[in-house]
Computed example of a mutant assay.
Amino acid sequence: MSAAFQASSAPSRRTALRGMGVGAFALAGAGALSACSSRESEAGASGAAAKAGFTITDQRGRKVTFDGPVRRIATAIIPSPSMIAAVDGSYERIVGINESTLQANKEGIFGTLFPESKKTATIAGADFVPNVETTLSLKPDVVIQWGDQGDEVIDPLENAGFKVIGLTYGTQEQMETWLDIFGTLVGKKERAAGLVSWMHDEEKAIRALVAPETGRRTKVLYLRTAADGWTTVNKAHYMNHWTDIAGGVNVARDEATGTPQVSVEQLLAWDPEVVFLSGFDTTAPADLYADKRLASLRAVRARRVYKVPLGGYRWDPPCCESPLMWRWVAQILHPRLATRLGLRDQITKTFDHLYGYSISRGQVDDVLRLGMNGGSSGYDGFRA
């Protein structure tokens, strides 16, 4: 059997996922999903790995050793809980999260998938500095934290005696390492490997679909609202990966700082054809359309400003739903490919396999933010 995933005939939310391994993933063509029936047979094998001791080398190069299964996980990293749940087929190990994750859980569909996620304790905020007292009270077997954000976010945890896995951010390869680490933590390495294999197949399929459309790459800009205006991202950000797959180019890629401030003057100078608005704030396309300072901006004139979807997690950063983001961006940049990209069908199949959940048509509308994006060019192509 090939290495991707299939749609289950009778999804039963979480129970269908327990024990899924690499054999449950099979890609056919440009994103079509084929059948397989090895879930139950692999349940014992994938769960057994967590019973013995094991060692993980994190992305700092540090070795973290565990004597037995990991049952309680706290994480300050914002997208990691949805990824752990997707690998594990359950939310039950997660005891602590970031404040931003909690907000997303309450606002989006993840809180419906896993209601307990809407009341999980928070161990850090936007600055990722951990609340050690709260973390101690949760008694986690491991804490997941950024390994490249400075000593102030990781030293307090290690000094308190926690086993800490440090992760780094920016590329698809780094995200795939996260999945491997999470698969090891919960004893489901085959499941994690299957997700990575599916992502590789999806990237190849989407690139093939958009290749005939990309003689000239579309100029795009990613904007996040800040206290004094906007920020964007340079070539070090994951945004460049999903932009490149879909046939676009980030107009801010060569900026010296990772998240540069953006003035009105700079926006007009870049004059992007498409603007993607971050899922981490409340700014909507209507806000840019109504801003008289931006009336001459090409993306505003063409009404090609779009709010990034919110699925099991926000689609801006790397997560297990990233292949859906790639398809969404590809359809934004190349609307006539809508039928061939089949995003709505992909969302249904992906939610089944990542979370064991049968998502409704109305919920797909919510994920895609049809209300917020409905006034933007080409968005009727995302309707059922």
Results as ranks from 00 to 15, higher is better:
residue 151 D to H: 07
residue 297 L to K: 04
residue 152 E to S: 15
residue 327 R to D: 01
residue 338 A to I: 01
residue 326 W to T: 09
residue 284 A to P: 00
residue 65 T to M: 05
residue 281 D to G: 02
residue 330 A to Q: 05
residue 285 P to R: 01
residue 21 G to P: 01
residue 328 W to P: 08
residue 294 L to D: 03
residue 288 L to D: 00
residue 247 G to Y: 07
residue 381 G to K: 15
residue 322 S to I: 10
residue 22 V to F: 03
residue 181 I to Y: 06
residue 339 T to P: 01
residue 208 A to S: 12
residue 49 A to Y: 06
residue 315 W to T: 04
residue 235 K to A: 15
residue 65 T to Y: 05
residue 197 S to C: 02
residue 292 K to C: 00
residue 242 W to A: 00
residue 336 R to A: 13
residue 370 L to N: 09
residue 234 N to W: 08
residue 179 L to N: 06
residue 243 T to A: 12
residue 20 M to G: 08
residue 200 H to R: 13
residue 33 L to F: 13
residue 372 M to I: 15
residue 262 V to S: 06
residue 265 E to H: 05
residue 353 H to E: 13
residue 143 V to S: 10
residue 128 F to T: 03
residue 66 F to K: 09
residue 121 A to V: 04
residue 363 Q to N: 12
residue 360 S to R: 12
residue 244 D to F: 10
residue 225 T to F: 01
residue 77 I to P: 03
residue 221 L to T: 05
residue 310 L to K: 11
residue 355 Y to N: 03
residue 187 G to S: 00
residue 355 Y to G: 02
residue 367 V to N: 09
residue 2 S to I: 13
residue 42 E to M: 11
residue 39 R to H: 08
residue 321 E to Y: 09
residue 290 A to N: 08
residue 103 Q to K: 15
residue 345 D to M: 08
residue 305 V to K: 01
residue 179 L to T: 03
residue 292 K to Y: 01
residue 67 D to S: 15
residue 49 A to Q: 11
residue 346 Q to T: 12
residue 359 I to M: 10
residue 307 K to D: 04
residue 331 Q to N: 11
residue 289 Y to C: 07
residue 263 S to P: 09
residue 60 R to T: 15
residue 183 G to P: 05
residue 72 R to L: 10
residue 187 G to Q: 00
residue 247 G to K: 07
residue 281 D to M: 08
residue 3 A to Q: 13
residue 283 T to W: 01
residue 65 T to R: 13
residue 47 G to Q: 10
residue 177 T to D: 14
residue 275 V to A: 07
residue 151 D to L: 12
residue 9 S to W: 07
residue 349 K to Y: 07
residue 66 F to H: 03
residue 315 W to E: 01
residue 48 A to M: 03
residue 233 V to S: 14
residue 111 G to C: 12
residue 63 K to I: 02
residue 151 D to Q: 13
residue 45 A to C: 00
residue 235 K to V: 09
residue 12 S to V: 14
residue 270 W to V: 07
residue 312 G to F: 05
residue 111 G to V: 07
residue 49 A to N: 05
residue 218 T to D: 03
residue 366 D to C: 00
residue 290 A to C: 02
residue 31 G to F: 05
residue 284 A to F: 01
residue 126 A to M: 12
residue 215 G to N: 14
residue 336 R to W: 06
residue 188 K to G: 05
residue 158 E to D: 10
residue 139 K to N: 13
residue 167 L to R: 11
residue 357 Y to A: 12
residue 199 M to R: 14
residue 174 Q to D: 10
residue 282 T to R: 11
residue 31 G to R: 09
residue 170 G to H: 09
residue 222 Y to H: 11
residue 150 G to E: 12
residue 110 F to C: 07
residue 34 S to Q: 14
residue 335 P to G: 02
residue 198 W to M: 14
residue 151 D to T: 15
residue 353 H to N: 14
